[in-house]
């Protein structure tokens, strides 16, 4: 843990602005999340144009394939500019554009409540907040606040996953057995299917599901309380574990959150207060 922090510290040139580095880190992570969905966008682009579904629940413009194209490309372009821009006004404008584009994705008929867009939306909200403060003179206070906000967002998202799983169907493993263990083509589940009998698989699914519920509950309730760098490390491990043990598509959901978690590594160590202790000098008795 200390070594990771030291590596981060060594990589910092003179005049290094931690909040700006954090901002760019999260923009890069948002782009990874968005472009991990590239296949989704390509297929959605064609299918939504060819098979429209008329549903009066959604306003017409939130069913239109044009809206989803503009929202996706607009957000991706704005985030790319945010990543490389050095003018703060441009960073602010692009952060807002990305935020609005992703907000549209979150309520469009073809992409609503996709967890990728929800997690990216939270990262965009964080980015808008930070973009308006990047030029503050209190850089250390700002990075501490940014890191605190980042771990609070990650905790809340994990809590959202946990709360909906406090059900008998998740505790018994029934849901995840059907979603993952029956036919999901991913290395973990392929290996388990090849190695174990269906009866044993159900037992494994039960414990797999229970560990998911417990990890999400504990981290959802407690991650934000941890010190910045510990929260960054544990958050990164948990989020990476979700991808490694569930499916690669989830990288689009957690990729941006991993970037957000890593903001904690940029928080500087607190200088240890120098305690000047006045030890009374004990004179050795001189031998006479």
């Amino acid at each position: 843990m200390n070594k990771i922090s030291q590596v981060f510290q060594r990589l910092q040139p003179a005049g290094f602005k931690r909040p700006l580095a954090a901002y760019r880190l999260v923009q890069a992570a948002i782009l990874i999340s968005l472009f991990w969905k590239w296949k989704f966008f390509l297929e959605a682009n064609s299918i939504y144009a060819n098979i429209p579904v008329e549903d009066p629940f959604f306003p017409d413009w939130l069913r239109s394939v044009t809206t989803i194209r503009l929202a996706f490309w607009g957000s991706a372009l704005a985030t790319s500019i945010s990543l490389i821009a050095s003018v703060n006004l441009l960073q602010k404008i692009c952060s807002w554009l990305g935020f609005f584009g992703i907000s549209l994705m979150c309520i469009h008929q073809g992409s609503y409540n996709d967890m990728t867009f929800v997690t990216v939306w939270w990262c965009c909200l964080w980015s808008v907040w930070l973009a308006h403060r990047l030029e503050t003179g209190q850089q250390e206070l700002l990075i501490r606040r940014a890191a605190f906000l980042s771990r609070l967002i990650i905790s809340m998202i994990l809590l959202g996953g946990a709360a909906g799983k406090w059900t008998p169907e998740y505790w018994s493993g029934e849901v995840l057995f059907d979603i993952y263990f029956v036919d999901r083509d991913f290395w973990v589940f392929n290996y388990l299917r090849d190695t174990y009998e269906p009866k044993e698989l159900q037992e494994i699914a039960k414990w797999y599901s229970r560990q998911t519920v417990i990890v999400e509950t504990v981290s959802g309730i407690g991650l934000w309380i941890l010190p910045a760098r510990w929260a960054a490390l544990i958050g990164t491990i948990i989020l990476s574990g979700i991808v490694i043990l569930s499916n690669q598509y989830l990288l689009s959901v957690v990729g941006c959150l991993i970037g957000l978690a890593c903001v904690g590594f940029l928080v500087p160590r607190r200088a240890q207060p120098t305690v000047l202790t006045a030890h009374p000098t004990i004179e050795k008795p001189t031998a006479h």
Binding site: S103, C106, Y112, V118, W121, I157, G161, G164, Y170, E174
Partner: peptide
């Protein structure tokens, strides 16, 4: 929509 709900409910 901001309320996270991944893998919620049966």
């Amino acid at each position: 929509f901001p309320i996270p709900s991944m893998y919620n409910f049966a």
